[in-house]
Amino acid sequence: MQFVKSKLPVVVTFGAAFIIVAQYYFNIPAWKTLAAEFLRWNVIIAAFALALGIGGIVKLHWGRISRRQPTAVYSAATLITLAIFLFVGLYETTRGKTYTWLYDFIYNPVAATSYATTFFFITSAAYRAFRIKNSYAAVLMISAILMMLQVGVFSVYLPVAPKIAAWVWNIPTTAGMRAVTIGAALSVVGNAFRVITGLERGHLGGGE
């Protein structure tokens, strides 16, 4: 059991990753075919992971309902909604009239509303965060204002704003973003190498 839980995943990871990385560097047709096959498997496994999500939601909310927690009513609402979407989707496929109606007039507005609340949060965040507490905060605030002034009508009445904003955007922002991206990418390479070689097993519930 220990082999299946901790060693087998490392062997599978190393084998698949070795083929995929090696075919990137070396032109060996058989490895290329194998790598394409592994990538297709990855897509299938990812689809199963979505099903795992459904299992996770059912387990969590069913547990709450059976323990009669105060939030059980919301859990029941979640499970009923899940059941409705699942049943309608399986019965008439996602192209069916009812499913499309559910998607367009229930899921879509609810999801869009959730995202739209960001509008309020950004307003209060700007009001609260952009205080000139020190020189860094001043730079942040001025950059933010410039970015807002470069879009839409302001750039017509204040033509210098887009020019300064473009400089902020193209030079310091891009330089900073590239630095972060390169640094983070190297760290990701390090982590990927540790996972592939089995030196890092945090994702398997263990350490190193």
């Binding site: 700007a126 009001y127 933010a144 807002m148 879009v151 302001f154």
Partner: peptide, 8 residues
Amino acid sequence: HALIILFV
């Protein structure tokens, strides 16, 4: 945007 600038 104008309003956010005003708030700031």
